[in-house]
C-alpha cells in the first residue's frame, strides 16, 4: 500500500527559468524505508520541501495517505509528516529538552503551553534514543552527531506516521552514521514510513527496503536496492565509473572504480 503517491510533479523556483523537478513520479510504500538516491542538485531537497508544503505551487499531483496534498493545510499535514532538515541554525542556547518539546507544537492549541503528558512523551523519546543524559545540555554545545539525534527526537515527539530526513548522515563520522542509520531502521520497524535522501548507495543497501534513484529532477529507477543499484545506472547518474561488489557475508559495497585514477 502506498503512503505517498507522486504523479508527474513539476516545480520551478520563483526566480528561475527552468524546472527543478521535471515531471517526477514516485511511490513511497507504507511502513518501509525509502532512500532517495541522487547526485547534488538532482532535486532531492526540493522534492522534500514540496512534500512538507514549504514550496508551492507545484504542477502534477501528490497524494498523502489518499488525500490530495493541496487539500491538506500545514496544520493537518504536521500531524502526518515530520521533517528533519540537513542542518539547523540555532543561535539561542536552548536546552535539548526545551528544543525537543517544540516538536509537540502540532498537538497544542495556538495559545496553549505543553502539558505534563507532552513532557512525558519527550522524556520517553529521549530515553529511546539514549539521550536522557544530555537533556539539560545546551544545543550549541552538542557534537554534530548529538545535534542530529536531537533533531530526530524533535521529529519523533511529533508522533507522525511519516518522517522525512534530508541527508541525515551528512558530515557525520562512521560511528554516528551507524547510530543514525540504526535509529532510522528502528523507526520503520515500529511502523513508521521513512523517506531519507543520501548521496551514498551503501546507506541504501544497509537500511532501505526501497530505493528511488533521481537525477536532473526526474525518477530514473525505483525498487529494492539489490535490483535498482547497478554499476551501469550509478555510472550514468554520477558520471563516474563505480564498482558494486557483494562480500562473502552478503553485504553489498559500492565504491569508485580504482581505474579512473590511472587515466587522470
Amino acid at each position: 500500500m502506498s503512503r505517498i503517491l507522486i504523479k508527474n510533479l513539476r516545480y520551478r523556483y520563483p526566480v528561475s527559468k527552468t524546472d527543478v523537478l521535471k515531471g517526477m513520479s514516485l511511490t513511497i510504500p507504507e511502513g518501509k524505508v525509502t532512500a532517495i538516491l541522487g547526485p547534488n542538485g538532482s532535486g532531492k531537497s526540493t522534492l522534500f520541501k514540496v512534500l512538507i508544503k514549504v514550496l508551492s505551487p507545484y504542477e502534477g499531483d501528490i497524494y498523502v495517505g489518499g488525500n490530495d496534498l493541496r487539500d491538506l493545510d500545514i496544520d493537518a499535514l504536521s500531524k502526518i509528516i515530520s521533517w528533519v532538515p540537513q542542518e539547523e541554525d540555532l543561535l539561542f542556547p536552548y536546552t535539548v529538552l526545551e528544543y525537543v518539546l517544540l516538536g509537540r507544537t502540532p498537538h497544542l492549541g495556538f495559545f496553549n503551553m505543553p502539558s505534563r503528558k507532552d513532557m512525558e512523551i519527550v522524556h520517553e523519546v529521549l530515553m529511546q534514543l539514549r539521550l536522557s543524559g544530555i537533556v539539560h545540555r545546551k544545543i550549541p554545545t552538542l557534537s554534530g552527531g548529538e545535534k542530529k539525534l536531537v533533531s530526530i527526537a524533535r521529529a519523533l515527539v511529533q508522533e507522525t506516521d511519516i518522517i522525512i530526513l534530508d541527508e541525515p548522515t551528512a558530515h557525520l563520522d562512521m560511528g554516528n552514521k551507524a547510530r543514525v542509520l540504526g535509529i532510522i531502521k528502528g523507526m520503520a520497524e515500529s511502523g513508521k514510513t521513512i523517506i531519507f535522501s543520501t548521496h551514498d548507495p551503501n546507506e541504501a543497501f544497509l537500511i532501505a527496503n526501497n530505493v528511488a534513484i533521481v537525477n536532473d529532477g526526474k525518477l530514473i529507477s525505483e525498487g529494492p536496492p539489490g535490483t535498482v543499484i547497478t554499476e551501469e545506472l550509478l555510472e550514468k547518474v554520477y558520471g563516474v565509473k563505480v564498482t558494486v561488489q557483494r562480500a562473502d557475508n552478503g553485504q553489498v559495497l559500492v565504491g569508485i572504480h580504482p581505474n579512473i585514477f590511472k587515466s587522470l
Binding site: I74, A76, P85, E88, D89, Y94, L102, T105
Partner: peptide, 23 residues
C-alpha cells in the same frame, strides 16, 4: 505573555516551523 511558549518556534528555521504546522 499568553503566546510566550509559541514564540519559541521563531528561533527555528522557517521550513521546520512550517513542518510543525505554524505559518
Amino acid at each position: 505573555f499568553i503566546l510566550r511558549w509559541r514564540i519559541n518556534l521563531l528561533i527555528l528555521d522557517d521550513d521546520v516551523i512550517i513542518s510543525l504546522g505554524t505559518d
